[in-house]
């Protein structure tokens, strides 16, 4: 134990990695939870790829000398906000499917835009565009931590203040509006702040870790935990444990910490599904007769015997 603390104290990159893990876990708890509530788990990857288009735009504007001060990260943030606004616009009536479609369309649009701009960017800068998706939690620098930290703080404060509103918008948008809440404003606020956090997290720790940590722990918790607060807390724990386990493993075995964290997070969802299945099985055993009325059983047996007849014919 003392050895581990010694190592952490002596290596600043490890301190940054652990801090980064903590921040990403907060982002997952504050933002991933609500995206999964709204059925928008696809948005994490949609926003990250949209940011790719923004990075391409930033590099193009810088390189062509049109807007020299335009840092590629500004482009990434701009595009992620645009995706959130577009998604929000499509889902103003509160229908999730429409928002998923909007995410898909903006994903395709900004990737096409990125590829389009690649022809006008000097070849040596093209890897920088793709580099946006490839971060590593062990390679975080101070600027990454400051940017990620401030966005996480913003996200955490907004979620603490307005978590009830975000829940109400997800549960009953129409009813919330009719009772006088400005549901539309909270709907946009939630999507835009989430998108900003996703975009910066992707830049800092890489796309794979963000997808895995944003979606899987929230999906896993939502299967098993029966209260909103419980889900938020459980997401934070699963995300943090997965990330720390990833970092720890990378010291023992030659492996990317993000990969381990991603695999663990995904496993948590599979495990949750299995636990839920087992629980349901116990419930079904109890009400067995009610679930299988006699006529259903007969049809089932009939269909089985038909299958056997078919086999004989062949």
């Amino acid at each position: 134990m003392i050895d581990i603390i010694q190592i952490i104290i002596e290596s600043p990159f490890l301190q940054r990695a652990i801090l980064g893990a903590l921040l990403i876990a907060i982002v997952a708890a504050a933002s991933g939870t609500f995206l999964v509530f709204r059925g928008l788990s696809f948005m994490a990857s949609g926003v990250a790829h949209a940011a790719l288009g923004g990075t391409a735009l930033g590099i193009f504007l810088q390189d062509s000398g049109l807007v020299p001060w335009f840092d590629p990260i500004l482009g990434a943030l701009l595009f992620s906000v645009l995706v959130a606004a577009f998604t929000g616009y499509a889902g103003e009536s509160g229908i999730t499917q429409k928002m998923e479609v909007a995410v898909g369309v903006s994903f395709a649009l900004s990737m096409s835009f990125a590829v389009f701009l690649m022809y006008y960017i000097p070849p040596y800068r093209v890897p920088q565009i793709w580099g946006y998706l490839i971060g590593d939690i062990l390679l975080l620098n101070d600027l990454d931590i400051i940017m990620l930290g401030s966005t996480t703080l913003l996200l955490a404060v907004i979620t603490l203040m307005f978590n009830k509103e975000f829940v109400y918008v997800s549960v009953d948008m129409e009813g919330s509006t009719a009772h006088g809440m400005n549901a539309r404003a909270y709907h946009y606020l939630m999507l835009i702040v989430s998108a900003l956090a996703i975009a910066l997290a992707t830049k800092a720790v890489g796309a794979i870790l963000v997808y895995a940590i944003m979606v899987a722990p929230a999906a896993a918790s939502n299967e098993l935990v029966k209260s909103v607060r419980g889900v938020i807390f459980s997401v934070f724990l699963i995300a943090l444990i997965a990330e720390l386990a990833g970092i720890a493993t990378s010291f023992v075995v030659f492996v990317s910490p993000s990969a381990i964290a991603g695999i663990l997070a995904a496993l948590s969802y599979i495990l949750a599904l299995q636990i839920k299945r087992l629980k349901e099985k116990v419930d079904v055993d109890i009400d067995d007769p009610a679930l299988y009325p006699d006529d259903l059983k007969v049809t089932w047996i009939q269909s089985l015997s038909h299958e056997h007849e078919d086999e004989h014919e062949h």
Binding site: V36, V167, V171, N222, S227, V231
Partner: peptide, 10 residues
């Protein structure tokens, strides 16, 4: 059916 049941509300 306008109430979303994916959120763990009590």
């Amino acid at each position: 059916d306008r109430i979303d049941l994916a959120i763990p509300m009590k």
